[in-house]
Simulated scan of single mutants.
Amino acid sequence: MKTALVCSGGLDSVSLAHVLAAQGRLARIVSFDYGQRHRKELDFARDCAARLAVPFHLVDLSGLGAALSGSALTDDVAVPDGHYAEETMRVTVVPNRNAIMLSVAFGIAAAQGDDAVAAAVHGGDHFIYPDCRPGFTDAFAAMQRAALEGYAEIALEVPFVHATKADIVTAGAAAGTPFARTWSCYKGGDRHCGRCGTCVERREAFHLAGVADPTDYADPDYWRAALAAHAGGA
């Protein structure tokens, strides 16, 4: 089965790329410039495609960021520090982002003769992002069956949709993912900040998985305080 992967260059999607490649199913990597505040992640996605010797498709949706305003990922809005599951992280929602990206990826997959489109949405995202939830992925798969009926049969693969971030680290490690060659931090500095929600979640995931974290964090110990604060407020 030939599978096109929507890949941001982050830990989740690069891990899934290596899992699919190990299974001999990775056909291509599709990434998006949607006008995000920093594009470091795209360099890591391109690097992943080169490493795994598959085509890399960079789709230019850069004009979209101005229209999808109000998110800390597209506007001049401060990225909050702290645990990923905090209500404050809702400021990182980009409305309908996954629906938009997956629609384009399905079009590319149909044109290229692929059998599936994969995305690395996972259970830890359900609290904040509606387009990472099983209800969305099930409905989207049904919509695409109708959209391509009679032209192509393309499955939506979301193997991590019920998994934790630690589960992804475990799966990625088993597939030989070079975690140091992934990017998670929303702040886009020279190093992972160690303080934003996605850095805290990343550091916690390695800890829970029992896998050494090779990431260079500007504040490598903040995650413990963030988790303690979250637990105290739960």
Rank of each mutant, 00 (worst) to 15 (best):
M1A: 13
G9N: 02
G10M: 03
H18L: 08
V19K: 13
A21E: 10
R25F: 05
L26K: 07
L26F: 09
R28Q: 14
V30P: 09
F32Y: 15
Y34D: 06
R39S: 11
A45Q: 15
D47L: 12
A49G: 09
R51L: 04
A53D: 13
V54Y: 08
P55Y: 15
P55F: 11
P55N: 08
H57V: 13
L58F: 12
V59E: 13
D60H: 11
D60C: 11
G63W: 04
L64W: 10
G65H: 11
G65E: 15
L68Y: 04
S69F: 12
G70I: 00
V79N: 00
D81Q: 07
G82F: 02
E86L: 01
E87W: 05
T88L: 03
T88S: 08
T88A: 14
R90S: 01
T92S: 02
V94I: 02
N98Y: 04
A99R: 13
A99N: 12
A99H: 14
L102C: 03
V104F: 09
V104S: 02
V104W: 03
I108P: 10
A110H: 09
Q112K: 13
D114F: 08
V117I: 09
V117D: 11
H122L: 05
H122Q: 01
G123T: 02
I128M: 01
D131Q: 03
D131N: 04
G135V: 03
T137P: 04
T137K: 11
M143F: 10
M143E: 03
R145Q: 11
A146Q: 14
E149C: 15
A152I: 07
A152R: 08
E153M: 07
L156A: 06
E157D: 12
V158F: 09
A163M: 01
T164A: 08
T164R: 12
G172K: 14
A173E: 10
A173Y: 08
A173C: 06
F179V: 03
T182D: 00
K187L: 06
K187M: 08
R191M: 14
R191A: 11
C196N: 00
G197V: 04
V200T: 01
E204H: 13
H207I: 07
A209N: 09
G210C: 12
V211S: 03
D213H: 09
D213K: 07
D213Q: 10
P214L: 06
Y217K: 10
P220R: 07
D221F: 11
Y222P: 08
Y222M: 04
Y222E: 02
A229S: 04
A231M: 00
G232L: 05
G232Q: 04
G233L: 06
